[in-house]
Write a protein that binds this DNA or RNA. Structure first.
Length: 216
DNA sequence: ATGAAGATGAACT
DNA sequence: GTTCATCTTCATT
């Protein structure tokens, strides 16, 4: 990923920290995924504050989406995908990694759905992020779904957390931080899955002036 | 009880 | 581009 927005360009202004309201997540999951680009993931614990701007997301649907955890119906793991929207869905994968999603769906036709957060640009709490990640290489701090959970200390305890309040973990509007409208949004097939590759449900912000990459 | 796949990352060639 | 570290979840026996 050579064309992601740079950390320095996003830290020029102070962002708002107002949580996105519940209604934000009561829309088509893919629309929510796209609209989350440019918003802020906020983490507070131990008296410290970490914030990152979301630049890559992925939508996962309900029973009609064979790539989704919700495809085969409710299980102990995925039950929050069928509950209230705006809730944290954290799951463990590959024996060592956590991934972070926010539940979202249009209740008119979907009974489940979630948006996987795949990439952040660090905005605040760089020292804590580096400590949590065990590296000072700013290029690789939060550029993957499991890297960002490690960077923000998101684990099983954050399963089911309400992301619409000012708690220890929430998502805020990015208003005032960065003019996202100046970025292109690139749509691609979802990463690491082999089903439903015709759905372009991976969304990425791309810096202005960067050539759009071919996406099969 | 058991097995296979998996929404991954790091290190290496 | 390849390999491996490593284990939960779910489906099947």
């Amino acid at each position: 990923m050579s064309s992601t927005p740079s950390p320095t360009s996003a830290t020029t202004l102070t962002p708002t920290t107002a949580p996105l309201p519940r209604e934000f997540y009561l829309r088509d999951t893919a629309v929510v995924a796209r609209d989350l680009l440019g918003s802020m993931l906020v983490r507070r614990y131990g008296g410290q504050s970490i914030m990152g701007m979301i630049y890559e997301t992925e939508a996962y649907g309900h029973r009609d989406d064979p790539a989704s955890h919700a495809y085969r119906g409710v299980t102990k793991r995925n039950k929050v995908m069928f509950g209230r929207v705006g809730i944290s869905y954290v799951y463990f994968t590959y024996g060592m990694h956590f991934c972070f999603n926010v539940t979202a769906r249009n209740p008119e036709y979907a009974d489940a759905g979630a948006v996987l957060i795949r990439g952040l640009i660090p905005i605040r709490g760089m020292d804590i992020i580096m400590k949590n990640r065990g590296t000072t290489d700013t290029r690789i701090l939060t550029d993957g779904p499991a890297k960002l959970t490690q960077a923000l200390n998101i684990k099983r305890e954050q399963y089911g957390v309400d992301l619409t309040g000012r708690g220890g973990l929430y998502i805020a509007s990015g208003d005032g931080c960065h003019d996202v409208s100046s970025y292109a949004v690139v749509r691609s097939p979802r990463v690491g899955i082999r089903k439903a590759t015709d759905r372009l449900w991976n969304f990425k912000l791309q810096s202005p002036g960067t050539r759009r990459q071919a996406t099969a």
